[in-house]
Every structure is written in structure tokens, then in C-alpha cells.
């Protein structure tokens, strides 16, 4: 209770704005013929999706629905609940993101340390990073033949640029003061790397990682909409194409999931960075 009371000045404005937003939405879309459902209608339309995120279709479940006289609803449900769909998307994002974090930090350290490498790679990177994520998909499919590795490659190629560029800048921005300390103490390369370069560049690296995780999540939804199969993006597109009555409500529920997961991912990387980094400020 004490915790809530202490944070009341922060919580109250959020509660008020969300309530106001839902109210306005409810009023605008209240008409039964409104193409976009109002919040209350979404809750009643997509009740099963909201309350059963880890639902999986099976004969047993089908029988249970049939017994309750709800066969029709069962037929309209996706094969898996939204929780599973989100987890599938998350697994793809984390795989691609991990590869890009390793490669991005590695190449970034190299670029930051060597002016020759920086000058050589910078123009290529500046061109490649402006390519929209989805534009890589045909190339990835042509090269990798299969949907799953292509999607992971797409995440990789989307996430690597901010990590790489921020790491390189972080290494270049190691303050002269710290370099002077290293010179006067004659730290060897290994000591310099671990005690000065890495801690000094860490805030930049984490900024890159945070931008990258947001971009990855944006890209996975788009990629899955094209790829199909399981995943929150595929769910959204399949539901739209299925033209079922409660489709738009289901899609809006999925969008809420996408937003919340994106927010959690961002905060997670922020928190890891916050505890890992000791800044001067």
C-alpha cells in the first residue's frame, strides 16, 4: 500500500489518460455499425483470446466446447492462443537479436579502435542501414530458401546497425583523460580493454542495444505478416484475411499484446544497461 501511495503522483496521470483515451474511443465507436469496435465490444468479442492466452487446439478441447454447445466459437479460434503466438515471435527476435548483438559489438569495437577499418566499413554501413527491413526478405529467402532462417536473418540485419554504430562511437569517445591514465600507467592492451575501453563504451553499447531491440520487434511483426505460419504478425494478417465477424476485435487485442511486449523488451534492456553501467553523471 505504501508503495502505491508513494508513487501516486506518477501513477495518477497515467490512469487518468488511459481512462480518457478508452472513454473517447468508446464514445466515437459506440455505434453497432462502426467499422472499428469500441473497447467494450472488443472485450465481449474476443473474450476467449483475452482470457486464454495459452490455449492450444486439440480434440479434447474441441469435445469440451462441443459439449458446452460452443463448437462455432471453437472453429473460429486460432490454433494457438495469443501467448503462444507472442512467444514464437519473441523466440525469433531473441535469436536474431543475439546474433546481431555479438556481431554488432564485435565489429563496432574493431571499427572504433581502428581508423582504417572505420573508414573502410563506414560507407557500406551507411548505405546498408537505410534499407528497410522488409526489403531484405526476398534476398534472405533467395539465399536461405526457408522461411524460419530468413525471418531470423531479417531480425539480425535490422538490429545490427544501431548496435554496431553506437559501439564504434562509444569506443571513439573514450575520454582523453582515461586514455592518459592508461598511458601513464602503461596498461597493456588486455588491461586497457577490460578496465577502461569496455566500461567507458558501455553506455553507448547499451543505447545501441536498446534501439535495436525496438527495431527488431517492429520488424518481426511485419516479417511474419508476409511469411505466415505461427507468430503474432501472422496471426494479425491471417485474422484479417479470414474475414470472421470478430476479426477486427481480435486484431486489436493482438496489437495490445505487441505494444506491451515491445514496451517490456525496451524496459528490460534499459534496466540491464542501468545496472551494468556506472556512468560519471
Amino acid at each position: 500500500m505504501g508503495l502505491i501511495q508513494r508513487n501516486l503522483p506518477q501513477i495518477m496521470p497515467v490512469v487518468i489518460s488511459i481512462t480518457a483515451f478508452l472513454l473517447v474511443w468508446q464514445v466515437i465507436c459506440a455505434s453497432p455499425v462502426s467499422p472499428i469496435p469500441a473497447p467494450l465490444r472488443i472485450v465481449s468479442d474476443s473474450q476467449l483470446l483475452i482470457t486464454r492466452p495459452f490455449f492450444v487446439k486439440s480434440d479434447g478441447v474441441k469435445a469440451a466446447f462441443a459439449q458446452a454447445g460452443k463448437s462455432e466459437i471453437y472453429d473460429q479460434m486460432p490454433n494457438q492462443g495469443l501467448g503462444w503466438q507472442v512467444l514464437t515471435s519473441l523466440r525469433r527476435v531473441l535469436t536474431g537479436y543475439s546474433f546481431s548483438a555479438i556481431a554488432g559489438v564485435g565489429i563496432g569495437l574493431l571499427m572504433g579502435s581502428s581508423l582504417v577499418v572505420y573508414r573502410g566499413l563506414d560507407p557500406i554501413i551507411q548505405v546498408m542501414r537505410t534499407v528497410p527491413p522488409l526489403a531484405w526478405l526476398p534476398i534472405a529467402l533467395a539465399g536461405l530458401k526457408q522461411a524460419e532462417p530468413s525471418t531470423i536473418f531479417l531480425i539480425f540485419i535490422t538490429a545490427i546497425w544501431p548496435i554496431l554504430i553506437n559501439t564504434a562511437v562509444g569506443v571513439q569517445q573514450v575520454p582523453q583523460d582515461y586514455r592518459n591514465v592508461a598511458r601513464v600507467l602503461r596498461l597493456n592492451r588486455f588491461e586497457y580493454f577490460w578496465t577502461i575501453l569496455l566500461p567507458s563504451a558501455a553506455p553507448y553499447i547499451f543505447t545501441g542495444l536498446r534501439i535495436a531491440v525496438g527495431l527488431s520487434w517492429l520488424a518481426i511483426v511485419a516479417a511474419e505478416m508476409i511469411q505466415g505460419g505461427v507468430g503474432i504478425g501472422s496471426f494479425i494478417w491471417d485474422t484479417y484475411n479470414s474475414a470472421r465477424e470478430t476479426g477486427i476485435s481480435d486484431i486489436i487485442v493482438a496489437l495490445v499484446y505487441v505494444g506491451i511486449v515491445g514496451l517490456v523488451l525496451d524496459k528490460l534492456v534499459y534496466l540491464i544497461g542501468h545496472f551494468a553501467v556506472q556512468s560519471d553523471k
Binding site: D177, Y178, N180, V181, T195, I196, P199, V277, Q278, S279, D280
Partner: peptide
């Protein structure tokens, strides 16, 4: 050094 140059971490 004038600005101390201590490593903040």
C-alpha cells in the same frame, strides 16, 4: 591531473 581522471566505474 587537473580534472582528477578517476575511473568512475
Amino acid at each position: 591531473f587537473q580534472n582528477y581522471s578517476l575511473l568512475p566505474w
